[in-house]
Design a protein around this nucleic acid. Structure first.
Length: 860
RNA sequence: GGGCGCGUAGCUCAGCGGUAGAGCGCUCGCCUUACAAGCGAGUGGUCGCAGGUUCGAACCCUGCCGCGCCCACCA
């Protein structure tokens, strides 16, 4: 595609109409992106909005894309879906509040910064104001202070965000670019901290020392919503525990956890183990005495029916440990290695054989030891089984006891769970069935929401702890940052009544070391985007927001967590509508992956087919439905855009102009055409009201093609004339063009704006959405159908004879039902003109309309 | 194992109780003074399978089969 936007040669077919000689899609994007920016077409008029009733505003809680990620065609589609709605609502006269945000805090950014600059964060280092990262990342990551690291995060995300903005402008998103937020910005941090303090004050947030799912690579806790299962090879090891009643065999995939064993458990009804309940057995190798207990969660038909409870191998262990009130014998450290010292009561030998090893190596060693000691019965049986992973991690999760912050989410409270499900029912889901995903998730929660992360680039908890005389933190009595001081960074800010020199000293204080999970801040996107912390007047007007667009994969995370925060703070749902997009998938129906290659890079596709064509294809993916990536479809959209250019030019050349009005439409076929169009307008409007942009486009497009192929063909010779009938055609063409450009404007913003600009003032995107009442009433749509059928009959005869459509017809006889014959008469002259019919007879007949044609002899 | 969605023309999908539809593809034509990046005419389907309800079922009900997504299970 060329970028030549120099003004093309123009003709001036009618007053005020300026049409290029050779219309082209090339250069339209550059031209209109610049024009829209300079004329602020999409600016939100805050004063006017606030002065108007609430329902004149449409506010959108745009998903802030992860700034450090990479956008693919799927993102382009779903953001475009939102833009369809935004543009429609704007044309309906709404003040559309449509900000864009960037989700730039959190682990994805940290990872990108580490790789991009070749650095890693070492919080023990001091800030180096002159630090510059190496030009190219070296083999060894350079350790930098937390502040240096955060600065690099800020720098890189700013660069990334500028690129994103360019792409979104290219996609034609009608966001107000003067209103962009970042989840790491000062006001976002203040919002997140303030909201957290409110949660804390109301008892919705709390800290607890508890077993937590732990990623050993990132060395951070992770939340239930961030888990995923992956199939991993493993093996059942059949291992004997000795007891007075004889050897008891358990089967385990994690024999390295034997030193962490605190009990065996079987189902209370399992007769095999009845005699053992209440007795003890001794662990192999370590000879630690552990009880045999009964619990309903033990499954008799799994393994040998009796399981080893370790602290902690999996979430079942946590349940058993808690409900059976067992002691803790932790052996896995934060780094995923076996702790240097055995837990109390576990002998140093052979524990020292495992200490410091990775879980994997420890398993190998312990199997050797078990084999030598004879405790291993037979050989391990290889299996494949699902193992829990952090969705962004690549090593299995461990469970480690740590102190973490939580927000209640109903996972441990049935009343709250019910309240949150009720909130979900206040939201109108598009499509409706997506509500089930929400309810399914809420009903399956098994614990509160863990929001703290042991990371660096995020919103810190605005909390310090006093240190006692031993230098131990007094967690029960935290020092909270006063709200007027937010945002704070407790690792550099000092709480009132202390000095920096007291940091980390006995009798002094320490900062809470953690940051909030990215969902803990992005769950506040309505607050951040709407100015809860910065512009209360605006917030009061636009919140609860009207629309939350997002994809279905993050209902359990972003959508749910946003509902939780809104429920607690405002006692309401955060939005009235949740519009859920599907994915763009491979031809084989798999979710499109980023590694799929250049073909799906958005900018590449946009350049090859043009933005309007890509948007047209996006409109073909109904709300919530996955859609396969198929480039041949883009060509169809491109064809439509070109057709709009060409027919627009032609219609204006025929004399259509903005000066003509509906009362000049006198011919029956013209009135009929506009009556049909009125029906199309009604249908498209109803579809858009239901967020069904696919249907809205479909009806407009279907009308448009028959309009071009039938109506324009029928009337063009009449329109060339200069009598009242010609004027009727010209007025009809003008009205039809205006209405159709507006119908297409939300989906095809560039080409519609281009054609609009040839003969209308202002932007089509600020023009009013068409309504049936602006079209003359009383036309009979049946005339259009009858005319099209008649014309088709003539065309078929020419096509069958393999002659040009220009071939002359000697006689044509249309035999039509009694009620249709007069309709044919009403279009007689248009029919004879466009069909080149010398003599047309119209007869009444009984069957459906038929056309008999005698072609004129071919001229030499 | 539970939930949700989906199986209609070669492909992508509408239709969701009254004679099977669109676009793409394919075939055959046509330089027609807007567009050959176009126009015209065709081709193509026991609507996943089996029962049931109904005068009538692609559409409603039941049960299967297949595909996809989410969740659970992890001894």
């Amino acid at each position: 595609m060329t970028t030549d936007i120099s003004p093309p040669d123009t003709t001036v077919p009618a007053a005020g109409v300026v049409v290029p000689e050779k219309p082209t899609l090339d250069g339209l994007e550059e031209k209109w992106i610049a024009e829209w920016a300079s004329s602020d077409v999409y600016a939100f008029d805050r004063a006017a909005a606030l002065a108007a009733p609430r329902d004149r505003t449409w506010s959108i809680d745009t998903p802030p894309p992860t700034a450090s990620g990479s956008l693919h065609v799927g993102h382009v589609f779903s953001y475009t879906h939102t833009d369809f709605v935004a543009r429609y609502r704007r044309m309906r006269g709404k003040h559309v509040y449509y900000p864009m945000g960037w989700d730039d805090n959190g682990l994805p950014t940290e990872r990108r910064v580490q790789n991009y600059y070749g650095v890693r964060c070492d919080p023990s280092l001091h800030y180096d104001a002159s630090f510059e990262p190496p030009d190219k990342p070296g083999k060894e990551q350079v350790p930098v202070s937390r502040r240096n690291f955060v600065e690099l995060c800020m720098r890189l995300t700013e660069e990334d965000e500028a690129e994103y903005e360019k792409l979104w402008r290219r996609v034609g998103l009608s966001v107000d670019w003067s209103d962009v937020y970042r989840t790491i910005s000062e006001s976002s941090r203040a919002t997140a901290q303030r909201m957290f303090l409110h949660n804390l004050a109301r008892g919705e947030a709390y800290a607890q020392e508890a077993p937590t799912l732990w990623d050993v690579t990132f060395r951070t806790a992770v939340a239930q919503a961030e888990l995923e299962d992956r199939e991993r090879p493993g093996a059942y090891h059949r291992i004997g525990f000795s007891s007075r009643e004889g050897v008891v065999y358990i089967e385990t995939t994690r024999p390295e956890l034997i030193p962490a064993c605190v009990a065996l458990v079987a189902h209370p009804d399992d007769e095999r183990y009845q005699p053992l309940f209440g007795k003890t057995v001794r662990t192999p190798l370590f000879d630690v005495e552990v009880p045999v207990l009964a619990h309903r969660l033990a499954e008799p038909d799994k393994g040998s029916g009796i399981a080893m409870i370790c602290t902690f191998g999996d979430l079942n262990d946590v349940t058993w440990w808690r409900e059976l009130q067992l002691p803790t014998r932790p052996i896995v450290g934060w780094d995923g290695r076996i702790l240097a010292d055995p837990p109390p009561g576990v002998p140093a030998r052979p524990y020292d054989e495992l200490a410091g090893k990775t879980v994997f190596s420890a398993q190998q060693r312990i199997v050797e030891l078990l084999r030598e000691s004879g405790h291993l019965d037979g050989e391990p049986t290889p299996i494949t089984h699902p193992v829990k992973f952090f969705e962004k991690g690549d090593r299995p999760l461990e469970i480690v006891t740590t102190r973490q912050w939580y927000i209640r989410n109903g996972g441990r409270d049935a009343d709250l769970r019910d309240a949150l499900i009720a909130r979900g029912r206040e939201i109108q889901w598009v499509p409706e069935h997506m509500r089930h995903r929400y309810e399914n998730w809420v009903e399956g929660l098994n614990g509160d929401w863990l929001i703290s992360r042991q990371r660096f680039f995020g919103v810190p908890f605005p909390v310090w702890y006093r240190l006692d005389d031993e230098g131990e933190p007094l967690y029960d009595d935290p020092i909270l940052a006063p709200e007027e001081t937010l945002p704070v960074d407790p690792s550099s800010d000092v709480p009132a009544g202390f000095t920096e020199s007291q940091r980390g000293r006995p009798g002094g204080f320490m900062a809470d070391p953690d940051v909030m999970d990215t969902w803990a801040t992005s769950s506040l996107s309505p607050q951040v985007a709407s100015g809860w912390d910065t512009d209360p007047e605006l917030f009061a007007h636009v919140f609860p927001m009207d629309q939350r667009p997002q994809a279905h994969d993050i209902i359990r995370t972003w959508l749910f967590s946003t509902v939780v925060r809104s429920h607690f703070e405002f006692g309401s749902a955060p939005w009235s509508h949740a519009t859920i997009s599907g994915f763009v998938v491979d031809p084989d129906r798999k979710k499109m992956s980023k590694s799929k290659g250049n073909a799906t890079t958005p900018i590449d596709v946009l350049e090859r087919y043009g933005t309007d064509a890509v948007r047209w294809r996006a409109a073909g993916a109904r709300p919530g439905a996955d859609s396969p990536f198929d480039e041949t479809q883009m060509k169809v959209g491109r064809r439509l855009a070109i057709k709009i250019l060409n027919v627009g030019k032609f219609m204006l050349g025929l004399g259509a102009s903005a000066a003509l009005s509906a009362d000049q439409v006198t011919e029956p076929i013209d009135r009929a055409l506009l009556a049909t169009l009125a029906g199309v307008v009604d249908e498209a409007t109803a579809a858009f009201e239901a967020f069904n942009y696919t249907r809205a486009l479909e009806v407009a497009e279907s009308f448009f093609w028959s309009f071009c192929d039938d109506y324009v063909e029928l009337v063009k010779s009449r329109a060339y004339r200069s009598d009242a009938a010609a004027q009727s055609a010209q007025a009809t063409l003008a009205i039809a063009l205006s209405v159709q450009l507006r119908l297409f404007a939300p989906v095809l913003p560039f080409v519609t704006e281009e054609v609009w600009s040839w003969w209308q003032a202002g932007s089509v995107h600020r023009a009013a959405w068409p309504v049936a009442s602006e079209l003359p009433s009383g036309g009979d749509p049946a005339i259009v159908t009858v005319a099209a059928e008649s014309l088709a009959g003539v065309r078929k005869a020419k096509s069958d004879a393999k002659v040009s459509m220009r071939a002359d017809v000697q006689t044509a006889t249309i035999i039509a039902p009694a009620e249709q014959a007069p309709l044919v008469e009403a279009v007689r002259s248009d029919l004879t003109d466009s069909g080149r019919i010398a003599q047309l007879s119209v007869l009444e007949g009984s069957g459906p309309l038929t056309v008999q044609v005698v072609l004129a002899p071919a001229e030499e």
